[in-house]
Computed example of a mutant assay.
Amino acid sequence: MAVAGATSSGGGEKADAAAWLAVIAGILGALMATLDISIVNSALPTIQGEIGASGTEGTWISTAYLIAEIIIIPLSGWLERVLGLRTLLLGVSV
């Protein structure tokens, strides 16, 4: 049974601009990762033809790309904390 006068756990707090910016950045990052995977998969026949890979070897190309992306995403966050954003971006651009 519900107790009369019980309060909800929502609290009614609203998100500020920084929280919305973080959400938008997360959505944009997920969209870019999905787009990258789609580009590699659609270019896979061309890649296979250029390097003379079979169908099985082509799936390994796609799998290797996905594994590299999965490793680099969290690694870049850690490197940013260790090196700082400016140093990381300068090192990546070289």
Rank of each mutant, 00 (worst) to 15 (best):
G49L: 01
L31A: 12
L88K: 01
T59M: 09
A25W: 01
S9R: 15
G26E: 05
D16M: 11
I47Y: 03
G29M: 08
I39R: 04
S38Q: 14
R81K: 13
A43F: 10
L79H: 02
I24G: 08
I70G: 07
S62P: 05
I71W: 10
R86N: 07
A4G: 01
G55Q: 11
T87C: 02
V3I: 07
R81L: 12
S9T: 13
A18C: 02
T34M: 10
L66V: 15
W20T: 06
A2N: 14
G58H: 03
G5C: 04
L79S: 04
T56Q: 08
G58Y: 04
G49I: 01
G91I: 04
L90Q: 07
A30D: 10
P74C: 10
I72G: 04
E80H: 01
T87H: 00
G58W: 03
G10T: 12
A33Q: 09
A18F: 09
A6P: 03
T7K: 08
M1H: 14
I73L: 13
W78C: 07
M32H: 01
A6T: 15
G91P: 03
L21I: 15
I27M: 08
G55P: 01
I24K: 04
P74N: 08
M1K: 13
G5Y: 05
A22W: 13
A17P: 05
T46V: 14
S42M: 10
G91E: 07
G29H: 09
G29D: 07
I37M: 09
E13K: 07
L21E: 14
W20C: 00
A25E: 12
S76V: 14
V23E: 07
G11H: 11
L88A: 03
S9H: 13
W78S: 10
I73F: 14
S8G: 14
I61H: 03
L31V: 09
Q48A: 13
G77Q: 05
L75R: 12
A4P: 02
L83M: 12
L44G: 10
Y65I: 09
